[in-house]
Computed example of a mutant assay.
Amino acid sequence: MALAAEQAVEAPAAKRKASEGAGLKTAIFAGGCFWGVEAVFSHVDGVKSAVSGYHGGTKRQASYSLVSSGMTDHVEAVKVTYDPKLVRYDELLQIFFSVVADPTLKNRQGPDRGAHYNAELVPLSAEQRAVAAAYLTQMKASGVWKKPIVTSIGPARTFYAAEDYHQDFAAKNPRHGYIQRWDKPKIASLKAMYPEHYRAAFVRN
């Protein structure tokens, strides 16, 4: 399970189920360092790609050196493409808040500090937006989290893919200290808490 610094929390199953129809769908999730967000979603059965990148700012600002300075309008984010026949958007939300992001933290996650690490949901359809709003309301009333929930729903802006060396980072660098300390436990929590959604192999971008 997750280490003490980032305990996994079993988020409630959504009362408002997503109904998105046939065909692949895409949504954006910001939840701290994109390495871990991508790593978890890459192990979710039904996810077809998980691309690390930047969301919220301009094209000129979309570089790791600028974003990591904290001086841009971007957050580190992951664009997730999934098959709703295999995993629904509301199930992705449950996984996200269970093992990826602490919804009570503002401008930080895990060891990382700064507005570029803020947790934010970015729905890319009216259905996703309705489901996300209903789920945040449900989370606030659930009593699962003792502190106020501050994760918000953001407007969809242009998503810029991060540099190639950030893509599939956990898969390419499984012995990296950050991956071992912060992201490997998240994947273990996914497997333990949601075995029906866990896929052992990474989906590669």
Rank of each mutant, 00 (worst) to 15 (best):
K147Y: 03
Y178D: 03
F96W: 08
V78Q: 04
A126W: 06
V99G: 12
A18K: 00
V80G: 08
C33T: 10
A133S: 13
K186Y: 01
G32F: 03
H166T: 01
V37H: 07
G57M: 09
N205K: 05
K186C: 04
A156D: 09
A18T: 00
Y82C: 02
V122S: 04
M193D: 05
Y89L: 06
P174G: 04
G56R: 00
S189N: 04
V51T: 12
T26Y: 01
D164V: 00
V44P: 07
G110V: 05
M139C: 05
Y165M: 10
P174D: 05
G21K: 03
A126D: 15
W182P: 13
L105D: 09
C33K: 08
A141Q: 14
K186H: 00
G36F: 01
L190M: 12
Q94D: 06
R157K: 15
N107E: 15
E127D: 12
R16F: 13
D183Y: 00
Y89D: 10
L86T: 14
A77P: 04
V44E: 06
V40C: 02
A156Q: 06
P123M: 07
E76G: 04
Y82E: 06
R129P: 11
Y82H: 03
A200P: 11
V47M: 09
K85V: 08
D164A: 08
W182M: 13
A77H: 02
M71C: 15
Q167L: 05
Y135L: 11
L190H: 11
K146Y: 08
L124C: 14
G70E: 14
F169T: 03
D164G: 06
L92K: 10
L66Q: 13
V80N: 08
L121Y: 11
A30W: 05
P174S: 04
K48M: 10
A134I: 00
A13R: 14
R113F: 15
N205S: 12
T158P: 05
T151I: 10
T81C: 07
Y82M: 05
A200L: 04
Y194N: 12
R88W: 12
L136Y: 07
S52P: 07
L3F: 14
S189K: 02
V51S: 06
E127V: 10
G31D: 07
P195A: 12
F169V: 01
Q94M: 03
S189Y: 02
T151M: 09
L124Q: 15
M139F: 03
V99T: 10
P84V: 05
H55K: 02
D83C: 08
S49V: 03
S49A: 11
K147V: 07
I179C: 14
A18Q: 00
V78P: 02
A171K: 13
S152V: 09
